[in-house]
Structures are given as C-alpha cells and as structure tokens.
Amino acid sequence: MPELPSVKETALAWESLFRCQVTIMRRLQQLPEFKELSMREYDVLFNLRRAPQCGLRLGDLNESLLLSQPSLSRMIDRLVARGLVVRQQDPSDHRAILITLTGAGAEVQRRIGRAHVRHINEVLGGALDAEQLEQLRALTTALSQSVAEEQG
C-alpha cells in the first residue's frame, strides 16, 4: 500500500492546482469570445447544453457551478432578458420551473464554445504533450470521483 502524503505535500499540491487554474482562467477571460458573455454566463449555457432537452431546475443547474443560488437566479434573469434561456414549467412537476436554452442561446454557446476549445487547446496543448494531458485528465478525474464518493 502506498505511503499517505503529508499535510504539507497535499497543501503544496492543492496550491499548485489552484494557482494553475487561476492563471489559465485569467488568460482565457481575456479572450474575445468572453466580451459577449462572461465565462460564468457561458458556463451556464454550456451546462444547459449538456442537460436533457427538457432543461434543468435551478438547483440542479447550480450543482455544476460555483455560484450562490441567488447569484445564479439573477444571472438567469439577465440571460432570459437577452433571449438566451427561458423558464418553463416542468412537465413532470407543475410546481417546478425548468431553465432551457433557446435557439439563440444554443447558437451562442456553440459559437463561443468552438473558439473556447481552440484557445484551451492552445494553452494546454502548448504546454503538455498527449501523454501528459491523459495523466492530467486521469488525476483530476480520480480527485473528482473521490470527493463525490465522500459526499455520498
């Protein structure tokens, strides 16, 4: 059985992971595609794009984001006003409201997403080779799964 890491080793690894993410996110936020929508707004559209066709309840959408529920609700209001998402009654529970992409929202998400993926490829692909990218994916997947299992 492998030796457990020290508190210092885990703290250093966490700090490195966090700083890396901050550095990359700051660079990506400067890109032209995020002049039209903020990265957080894009993240909402991205998550709705991956959702079932009927959409997501606000609470379910919020599980994939780093926003408070009131902040997300205000953002949804802004996205509704821009015609990118709609609120509609949940057909399986008429008391609940689903958030879904409009056609315009799906088009904006696709367009920005294509540019975003190209820029991510430039940043990550310019720094890591294919084997390192696979290792990174495996490590981050293992971390995510471990935390999810702990939450139960």
Rank of each mutant, 00 (worst) to 15 (best):
V108A: 12
L136A: 05
R111Q: 10
L79E: 11
Q88V: 14
A106R: 06
L133S: 00
E107G: 03
T141V: 13
G126P: 01
V123M: 09
A106D: 12
A106C: 06
L98N: 07
S92K: 11
L101A: 00
V86E: 15
I120A: 07
V108Q: 05
L133I: 00
G105W: 09
L136I: 02
A104R: 13
V85P: 11
E131V: 01
Q132T: 03
E134N: 08
R95Y: 08
G83D: 15
A138G: 06
L84A: 12
Q132N: 04
R137D: 05
G126N: 10
L128C: 02
R118W: 06
H119N: 08
L133V: 00
R82L: 15
T100R: 13
A115D: 04
L84I: 14
I97R: 10
A96L: 08
L79M: 14
Q89F: 13
D93N: 14
Q89V: 15
Q132V: 06
R95S: 10
R118A: 08
T140K: 04
T102E: 04
R95H: 08
G126Y: 09
L133E: 00
T102Q: 02
R78H: 13
L139T: 11
G103S: 03
S92E: 13
G105L: 05
R110A: 10
G113C: 03
L84W: 15
V123F: 12
D129I: 00
L133R: 01
R137G: 05
V85H: 13
T140N: 01
R111Y: 07
A127F: 07
G113S: 07
Q109W: 08
N121D: 05
R78G: 12
R118N: 08
A104H: 10
L98Q: 07
G83L: 14
A96G: 05
T102M: 00
G125A: 06
R137V: 03
V80F: 12
G126C: 11
R137N: 03
T102A: 05
L98D: 08
P91H: 12
R111H: 10
N121T: 07
L136W: 02
S92A: 12
I112F: 03
T140W: 05
A96T: 05
Q109K: 06
L79N: 13
V108Y: 02
H116M: 01
G103T: 10
T140E: 11
A104N: 04
G113I: 04
G113T: 03
R95A: 12
G105K: 02
A115F: 03
A104P: 00
R137P: 00
A115P: 00
I120S: 02
Q132S: 05
E131W: 02
L79V: 13
Q89S: 15
G83C: 12
R110W: 04
R137F: 09
E131K: 00
L98K: 09
S92D: 12
L79Y: 15
H94A: 11
R82S: 14
R137L: 05
L84G: 14
R78N: 14
G113Y: 04
H116F: 08
R118T: 06
V85E: 13
D129N: 02
H94G: 07
E107L: 09
L79A: 11
T141Y: 15
A81N: 15
E122L: 10
E131S: 02
A81Y: 13
T141D: 10
L136K: 01
G105Q: 05
I97W: 13
G125Q: 04
Q88R: 15
I97E: 12
